[in-house]
Design a binder for these strands. Structure first.
Lengths: 246, 246
DNA sequence: CGCAGTTTTGATGGACCTCAAAGACCGTGG
DNA sequence: CCACGGTCTTTGAGGTCCATCAAAACTGCG
């Protein structure tokens, strides 16, 4: 297994230091978090927790990508969350998780045991305020996702997912990836179908169509290049330019 | 216009005192909120704010029901939130709203101007912690909703919506309405279709089917009686008893 | 090279959408 | 009190997008 590529003793060298739940912390507050943290690593495809299980910690995703999934009695599955580096896992004040959490790639978590973290949440306002901010961001993206699930066509769904992944892999949420942007899909066709409320066959067909029309270029099954990002944006069905131009 | 049916000077008589963002406040904290609050009432069907508009206040819904909607360029609409009494409207730290907000029935809001509220959020931890708790609850229900949108059949969607409305109208979220429960639909068929990612015709057909099979009884278009609540629950496709019995 | 898992492609069917018209509900005014 | 009009809802007929079932092609790895 790979070694973690940063100094686990020093939060200052942490790649998510300025985006995670600790982002607003001063040095002394950071020290309190540092005192109760520990790391865990999961292999690609490995479950992190199952719905209904107790989760003894909360955590920040440091590297890798994890998914939250709901499963119905008859096996139908819907992804309901996708955790990128700096995203927060777990709910303070609740011991049982509602969703299956799975590592989509190798995932490293920065974990805090529940009780000390909740105590800290009460004492250190900058952690609570940052967590509120992050939760509101997640609620916003959940609502965008609801529009995708409820109203978009299969083709628009695929384009939307590609845009979301391209943006998040590029690091900052607000910047627009440039033309020629290249990124890896962090998931299988099946996971994409669970994200989008489609079957894996429909996902495959729509990706093939976008490829044939030159909207995207594939090398291998996971690597995507976007020659013209605006073209991809048009395919999402969203208002590309905020309604300012034509 | 009807008069508000409680004393607007006294938070103690407020119907949502123990469930809203002020739920965890002590008397002195409540006094600070009371000092900056004001009320607004909107008629059924009236817009509260449009997506992209500035919203100068945040608010708790005191009475009535409001919806959050997203609209695509070509007119497709998806409801992304449904605000019942005690739910919170607006996002601290952001001046512009992302969704159209509409009063579905006559709505009374308990409003706080943004700046004083955000100031109070910094000074009074019990408000921030309650808001975090409420936001996490909303995120949970948004994720349940995503399962509905992505994986359920039209019939299951209708049954799920009826259960959600029955539960929330009954007041507490956890209690199961008894058999013979009667409630009013707070929205038109069209709004139901925007909630569920369907057309209004499909909504109407599925309601007719549930009615014909005796799962529900209608009197007028808005009043619903559920003779056997477990029967309705089965129609949602969800695990009825948490997988404990059969 | 061969094998297991993943992805693509094909053929067919069904759930839901679209377009259209009739029917029910409800407030208003005669 | 009932007739009238507008809006909302129901019902019908036909079409389409996506799911389902099935098999071939590809990818990656020992």
């Amino acid at each position: 297994m790979d070694k973690i590529a940063f100094d686990t003793k020093d939060c200052g060298s942490c790649p998510i230091r300025h985006r995670a739940v600790c982002a607003n912390c001063q040095a002394d507050e950071l020290a309190q978090l540092e005192a109760i943290k520990f790391y865990r690593t999961y292999q690609a495809g490995q479950p992190i927790v199952w719905a209904g299980d107790r989760l003894e910690f909360v955590a920040s995703v440091v590297t890798g990508i994890a998914s939250l999934n709901q499963t119905m009695e008859d096996g139908r599955r819907q992804m309901v969350g996708l955790l990128f580096p700096s995203d927060f896992l777990g709910r303070p004040g609740r011991n049982v998780v509602n969703y299956d959490v799975t590592a989509m790639s190798e995932v490293t978590l920065c974990c805090f045991r529940k009780a000390p973290f909740e105590d800290l949440l009460r004492r250190v306002p900058s952690v609570g305020s940052r967590l509120l901010e992050m939760t509101l961001d997640e609620l916003d993206s959940a609502r965008e996702w609801m529009l995708i699930l409820g109203r978009k066509t299969a083709r628009e769904k695929i384009a939307s997912l590609l845009v979301i992944i391209a943006r998040r892999q590029a690091g900052l949420l607000l910047t627009k990836p440039g033309d020629g942007a290249q990124f890896d899909l962090p998931m299988s066709r099946e996971s994409m179908s669970e994200y989008l409320g489609l079957t894996l066959e429909t996902v495959s067909r729509q990706i093939s169509a976008l490829k044939k029309e030159g909207v995207i270029v594939l090398s291998g099954n996971r690597s995507v290049t976007v020659p013209d990002f605006d073209r991809l944006l048009e395919e999402t069905g969203d208002d590309v330019d905020g309604g300012m131009l034509a």
